[in-house]
């Protein structure tokens, strides 16, 4: 199974950050969702960030929340999400970060949840509503299952806490570029550069930037700031939402957008 280490090392050689699109598993339905993910892989995704739908996604804005609702209405379950991961891995050996809310893990049984998803091909877990203060509840089971842990850093995280977050993180640091929830924005926060620079000084753990990355120019700015990866969520999910009645157009638009981003973050 391809690891983050391998991918980040390869990309260092290539001189560009990882392209990391985010999708909600099963949005708008299992089969279409799988086609979307395959399209993203073909368009050049280096790592996938995949979310499991939750009824009350407090860290997400309206775009992802609506995707969660679509996925749940189409009958997504934790077991189906696991099957989905296996099918993605059958298509391509690409590292997958899993994002979910804690209650889903807790109800399933943390050890069982992590073991099964790692077996299916997941590389890391990010629990959206679990900070490093309660990392103890997932760290042991994650390590035992062979999973990397991903935690978030925000523009208002104090340097001391950044260090602690980095010490708990084995996959990559998910850097939130703006204050707020997920969602497309016209302007990228001007704090990104400073934030990436501060993190880079503190840790060798790869730093990936997400939240509000919605244009190729944003991605280029993040690449220029020295980030190891660019996470694009709401923007690509909004392309799903905008094309619910036309699958081919949906896939084409996602492919086009990701290709543009890839070009923007690659050396000229």
């Amino acid at each position: 199974m391809k690891t983050y280490k391998q991918v980040f090392a390869e990309l260092k050689q290539a001189g560009r950050p990882a392209l990391i699109p985010f999708f909600v598993i099963g949005d708008p339905d299992f089969d279409t969702s799988l086609e979307i993910v395959k399209t993203a892989i073909d368009a050049g995704a280096d790592i996938l960030e995949l979310g499991i739908a939750f009824s009350d996604p407090i860290a997400d804005g309206p775009t992802i929340q609506k995707a969660d609702i679509r996925a749940m209405r189409s009958g997504m379950t934790v077991a189906k999400a696991c099957r989905f991961i296996r099918q993605v891995k059958d298509y391509r050996d690409i590292p997958i970060g899993l994002l979910m809310y804690y209650n889903l893990v807790y109800q399933y049984g943390t050890e069982k949840f992590f073991t099964e998803f790692h077996k299916a091909g997941v590389n890391s877990v990010l629990v959206a509503d679990l900070s490093i203060d309660d990392a103890g509840e997932i760290e042991g089971p994650a390590r035992a299952a062979g999973l990397d842990t991903v935690f978030m850093v925000t523009p208002i995280t104090a340097p001391e806490r950044m260090k602690r977050i980095a010490s708990k993180t084995t996959g990559f640091i998910y850097t939130v570029s703006v204050l707020g929830v997920t969602g497309s924005r016209n302007e990228l926060s001007d704090t990104v550069e400073g934030l990436v620079a501060r993190l880079k000084k503190l840790t060798d753990v790869p730093v990936c930037v997400g939240f509000g990355v919605s244009k190729p120019e944003h991605a280029a700015a993040i690449a220029a700031a020295g980030a190891d990866g660019v996470i694009i969520g709401s923007r690509v999910v909004s392309l799903v939402e905008a094309n619910l009645d036309g699958k081919q157009k949906m896939l084409a638009e996602i492919a086009t957008f990701l290709t543009e981003v890839k070009t923007a973050i690659s050396p000229a």
Partner: peptide
């Protein structure tokens, strides 16, 4: 109880 929240709310 506890505080199971996204990192951005911790501070």
């Amino acid at each position: 109880g506890g505080f199971y929240v996204p990192e951005v709310l911790i501070s």
